Amino acid sequence: MPLHLLHNTTATEYPRRYGDIRDNSEWLRVLIRSYADELPAGAVFSHVSAALIHGLDPPYPATDSAEVVRPGFHRAKKTLRTRDRSLNSEELTHVGDLPVTTVGRTLVDLATDYPLEVSVPFISEALRRGLASHESLHSSIRSGTRGCRRAAQAFDLASPAHESSGEALCAVKFFRFNIIGMIPQVNTYDGAGAWIARNDFRHDKHPLIVEFHGVGKYYLNNAGPDRASSENHERHMKLLNAGYRVFNLVWADLFRAREFTKIRAAIAEFG
């Protein structure tokens, strides 16, 4: 379980240190662990804290506070946020010794209270890992309550086909920029029917492809970053020669408008 201290027989450093935005989540895990024995009666971990406890990875630092729900109490401290929420027994569970909302309730809370950029990657990961289904999530929405429309939108945008947080964020940005028709994880072939690649996103009508390049694609490749970069360039050229317009996005592109404005304009040019 992600928040338990590691077994004495392992030599793994805790918390892990990455030197990037993942360190925020590691320290949030430590903070959650520090509150484990101090929760008041009726309080259970929720939202991002619950997602971390269930082993889901945040797309980027969404909060630096531990989060709980507790009926009849609402308070926001620097390191602990308490929301006044009522829960039924089916929405509660334990992971190890930690009281926590179930995966389903956690995803509903995230979809209701956080922007799409936070909730959709969490939901997509849960769908991909088989921890939830679109049907169960949509049926959990409480119609007429605050945030119910945003939750429904988050569930619609999330997909098990998103293989990373970056791809899930791409889907959100397509929605934000009114880019319609981008299908995730599509096999692409040339004019002779030869397979070229499985692309992160391809337009359903026009020869336009969007690829997201996370750092892991290069540095977690068994053959090393040089080999991965060379293979990516070769694939890119094959796609261009087959008549596709290709947009290659990196993490920073997900947080600025320029590339998505270009994608929208390119689709418009096809008519």
Score class of each variant (00 low, 15 high):
42 G>S: 10
163 E>D: 08
86 S>T: 01
56 L>C: 07
146 R>V: 11
218 Y>Q: 07
149 R>Y: 08
40 P>W: 09
51 A>E: 01
195 W>L: 12
65 S>P: 00
105 R>K: 14
234 E>M: 09
199 N>R: 15
106 T>L: 05
98 L>W: 10
168 A>I: 04
18 Y>L: 03
146 R>I: 10
196 I>H: 01
3 L>Y: 11
11 A>P: 00
224 G>E: 10
47 H>M: 01
256 R>C: 05
125 E>I: 03
36 A>S: 15
215 V>I: 15
241 N>R: 14
100 V>M: 07
36 A>T: 04
180 I>F: 12
189 Y>G: 00
22 R>E: 11
92 L>E: 01
173 K>M: 15
72 G>K: 03
201 F>K: 05
42 G>T: 08
23 D>W: 06
271 G>K: 15
84 D>K: 07
14 Y>R: 00
56 L>G: 10
160 P>M: 02
160 P>T: 00
90 E>P: 00
235 R>Y: 09
212 F>Y: 15
28 L>Y: 02
43 A>V: 13
91 E>W: 13
78 K>Y: 11
38 E>K: 11
209 I>L: 06
163 E>Q: 12
196 I>M: 01
135 E>M: 05
218 Y>A: 01
226 D>N: 15
25 S>T: 12
16 R>Q: 11
202 R>N: 01
235 R>S: 03
165 S>K: 10
255 F>W: 14
248 N>I: 02
250 V>M: 11
96 G>V: 10
242 A>Q: 04
2 P>H: 06
33 R>H: 07
40 P>I: 14
206 H>V: 14
183 I>V: 15
37 D>E: 14
203 H>A: 07
84 D>V: 02
252 A>M: 04
92 L>A: 01
159 S>K: 03
112 T>P: 02
200 D>P: 03
258 R>Q: 10
45 F>Q: 00
172 V>Y: 07
151 A>Q: 12
248 N>T: 04
85 R>A: 15
229 S>G: 05
24 N>G: 07
55 G>Q: 07
222 N>K: 14
180 I>P: 01
59 P>V: 08
